[in-house]
């Protein structure tokens, strides 16, 4: 049996009177790339923020990193630093690309910052732009810098919220290649939220389908796309679900 990174039981997130997330059982194994798919407003980003230890669930228990005791909120810094999240809309500091990518390393007072930043920028094809001002970058370049500043930290878990939304095919391929290389070299656990069913099919080992805040189905990628059990999953995979 694989070692798990996350286990969740009866996770619920409620904003005001609205329940935005309801997941009864959640398991994410170490080294897997889990794709979370679903229409807008399904609770994908909320689940990702809970997994990033940025937001506590209103109810339920979350276990992280194989530890027998559940995560306490606010989580301690050492636990938080094992997870890194790339947001859908990357916000960079008003500084150079190098400074932005080095931010997390400097926050940790890490060694060998220059070499590690250059290596991360190389992975996303932006080594030549290290000294460019962040505000001069295009949308695709911004997203690649956001990925680089997460990759440079070599996290145990990498959470990606729609990292390729609104990007052209070239930028999508650069980001997907970087993810493949990361998994190949570091055996990093990746949770990828995406609208794009084809991307989930290309990259994911396991896929979770969220609808209206509820986890409809979780299965390995082949089963999910070839023989989904739930009729709503079938409709979503076939593209019949209008949202």
């Amino acid at each position: 049996m694989s070692e798990w990174v996350y286990q969740g039981e009866n996770l619920r997130v409620v904003y005001g009177r609205r329940t935005v997330l309801r997941v009864e059982q959640l398991t994410i194994n170490a080294g897997d790339l889990v794709g979370i798919v679903g229409p807008s407003g399904a609770g994908k980003s909320t689940l990702l923020r809970v997994l990033a230890l940025l937001e506590p669930p209103t109810e339920g228990v979350l276990y992280f990193g194989g530890r027998s005791e559940p995560v306490r909120w606010p989580p301690p810094l050492d636990l938080r630093r094992r997870v890194t999240m790339v947001f859908q809309r990357p916000l960079l500091l008003t500084a150079s690309v190098f400074h932005n990518v080095a931010y997390g390393l400097r926050a940790r007072r890490a060694d060998n910052v220059r070499a590690r930043v250059e290596q991360a920028l190389e992975m996303v094809g932006l080594a030549h732009m290290a000294h460019a001002a962040a505000h001069t970058l295009s949308g695709g370049e911004l997203q690649r810098v956001a990925l680089a500043r997460a990759l440079v930290l070599e996290p145990e878990v990498l959470l990606l919220d729609e990292p390729t939304a609104n990007l052209d095919p070239y930028n999508v391929s650069v980001i997907e290649d970087a993810l493949k290389r990361l998994r190949h070299h570091n055996h990093t656990t990746v949770v990828l939220v995406t609208h794009n069913v084809f991307q989930a099919r290309r990259l994911a080992d396991r896929v979770m389908f969220l609808l209206d805040g509820e986890c409809v189905e979780t299965a390995d990628a082949e089963t999910f796309f070839e023989s989904p059990k739930d009729p709503r999953t079938r409709a979503f995979v076939r593209g019949d679900m209008v949202y």
Binding site: R80, T84, R89, T94, Y103, A107, R149
Partner: peptide, 25 residues
């Protein structure tokens, strides 16, 4: 943007480091 602070915290910044970075912005 309030999301900047959350993004910096997700990169492993302490709350104090993230606050300083936002003040710098």
């Amino acid at each position: 943007d309030p999301n900047l602070r959350q993004q910096l915290i997700s990169l492993g910044a302490t709350h104090w480091q993230a606050t300083l970075a936002v003040l710098r912005e």
